[in-house]
Design a protein around this nucleic acid. Structure first.
Lengths: 227, 227
DNA sequence: GATAGTATGATTGTATACAATTATACGAGT
DNA sequence: ACTCGTATAATTGTATACAATCATACTATC
């Protein structure tokens, strides 16, 4: 099954459709294409140097991810990131990361635990020096390890999706002072998993998300996405 | 935004792609296409009387839903329903239906509450007479009302997806004696929402899913999907 | 007989051509 | 001036043609 992801990456890298899909996805998430903007097949095809076919296939996928809305015989329109959606995702993730941490207690491998410890150790180093970019990357990686350690492809896939979705906001959040605090929370979560305490791990992961969310609110970071 | 769903239905009904998508989806979920079976574009196109283009677009969507796996330049292979996936989904849904019920306390409309009451009342009637088909439909509808009442398009969409995914299993479960019990649980959930008690509503919805899951295990209904 | 290499056929990936639908502009009628 | 209808342009929906890739079978070589 890990195979599938590898294959997927290969697809995305070498097929035009995959490249178009990821490119448009990025452009929407990064704000190049604004809310309600119309995406035209030929225009995007020309911009990327491909025909309409791979563009259309990419559109179908983007629609299923909720990033665009396709109206039959009319066109594809960007569905921008809504503040409400981000809020909802944080609450949903709160529950699911809790579940993920709970399952991780039983299924995490020695290698994954070691990588977590290394991750946290490294993050302490970079936090002390204010290396924001590295912090963001390490945070990213910590959560991905957690997702992979729960032994559920379903949950892993779901959480990775949401994680991606709020990536931009998250990066800004971590660029604030929360980086160090967040890392300490990671440490507690890891320790709970290590001592195989599912209730504690769940509760901590739960709270970790809520803290991140409230920090975001406090800092007014969501206003960037106000409509 | 409710508009979007309507538009989507129109697409699915009138576009070839939408029809192909739903048809293949059904066929996979209903077991016509077995696990690991290869789906060939031309064959399916001929069977449905369309060209490869709409079939390919449908494939891309099915891949994103995880129902098929596309290996570049090789083909599309059915990813059958795994027992593990169903188990995971029930646990994920347990958490999310809880969250949904919690949010419903604040956001449910008078109309939705009335439809819920009617639903439960009707279900009592059919449960007493052993009308399994109606019970399944009413259960379906109850959960959909709940999803729609939480005021979160994100959560609603997610829960509806999962609900669909385990539809077959669920129907079998309800065809057993649990129908009446399940309806009583619905009643309690509704009452908790009605009296605006989020903690209680969440806990009850939570447990409702776990009960459904354990009933499924007890009855050995998952063995139908054993690989 | 086993294996490596090659040729052939099947299948997918992409581009393009044509059909259907929708939006826009223009003009006639009031 | 306004509205309705029609013509035209733009855009998407679908089908098909061609290119690239992969699987299979056959043959030559050891």
């Amino acid at each position: 099954m890990e195979n599938q992801d590898v294959k997927q990456e290969v697809t995305d890298k070498y097929s035009l459709r995959g490249r178009v899909f990821h490119r448009i996805r990025e452009d929407i998430l990064n704000g190049k294409y604004k809310d309600h903007e119309e995406l035209k097949e030929v225009a995007i095809g020309q911009e990327l140097g491909v025909s309409r076919t791979p563009v259309r296939e990419a559109f179908r996928q983007l629609e299923l991810e909720g990033l665009i809305q396709i109206i039959p015989n009319r066109g594809a329109y960007v569905t921008g990131i809504k503040v409400k959606d981000i809020q909802d995702i944080y609450m949903i993730r709160s529950k699911l990361e809790g579940l993920c941490a709970r399952w991780a207690c039983e299924h995490i491998t020695k290698e994954q635990l070691e990588e977590m410890e290394e991750n946290i150790y490294l993050a302490e180093f970079h936090a002390a020096r204010g290396h924001m970019e590295q912090m963001a990357e390490l945070d990213n990686r910590f959560h991905n390890i957690l997702y992979e350690s729960c032994n559920s492809k379903m949950l892993e896939h779901l959480l990775k999706d949401y994680h991606q979705y709020v990536w931009r906001v998250r990066q800004q959040t971590l660029s604030s002072s929360r980086g160090a605090v967040s890392n300490v929370e990671h440490k507690f979560i890891m320790e709970a998993i290590k001592e195989n305490n599912p209730d504690k791990a769940e509760e901590l992961a739960n709270q970790h998300m809520i803290n991140a969310y409230e920090n975001m609110l406090d800092k007014g970071l969501l206003e960037l996405y106000e409509q």
